[in-house]
Amino acid sequence: MSPSPEEAAAALRAINSVQARAAGFQDYRAESRQLMLWGVVNLLGCVFTALFPSFLLLIWLAVVIVGLVAGVRLARIAEEVMPGIVWRYLLVVGSVLLFALLLHVVMWPLTPRQGSMIVPLFVATLYVIRGAQSRPRYVIIGAGLALLCFCCFLFATSHYWWWLALAWGGTFILSSLWLRRT
């Protein structure tokens, strides 16, 4: 027996709903891998900065290069499902790095403590914007990251880089695990 037009419309709505859910699931999975990578990378960057503060620039240069190379490799895994993801990924990471660089130039001189806030706060804002447009979990991740890093900036008088390692790297790692629990 042929379904009524109402039933047909309901079936098409169900298909759209599942497809949106499946797309979100794949998006969260791909993002989860990146969050884990950059969580570990940022955590290590902060820890090494805490241990060897005079090598700050070298440490972050090395950390960013390692993160970028590994990130591109991870993005390639998702290329099959999301064509063009590698170029979009490079564009996003490149924009974040360029933003951090330009802000350092504009605001110079910055203390390392001030400079350390640029990337996490910018990335947190991007996550909130992305979440508002598509997937709500990103709003929580962005808001959490901004809040914890800013609290760290305001209140961590001693062992600043260790606290930032937890606030920045730790938030990314926990967020990664959360996104996997879809």
Binding site: S2, A8, A14, I15, Q19, R21
Partner: peptide
């Protein structure tokens, strides 16, 4: 008269097919 595939028309199977259809072939 149009009659959809009864095998797919069942709600859970419809969701399964819709979800798998979002993947590339052989994924």
């Amino acid at each position: 008269m149009q009659t959809p595939d009864d095998l797919i028309h069942q709600p859970v199977r419809l969701k399964i097919m819709a979800a798998l259809n979002t993947l590339a072939s052989n994924q």
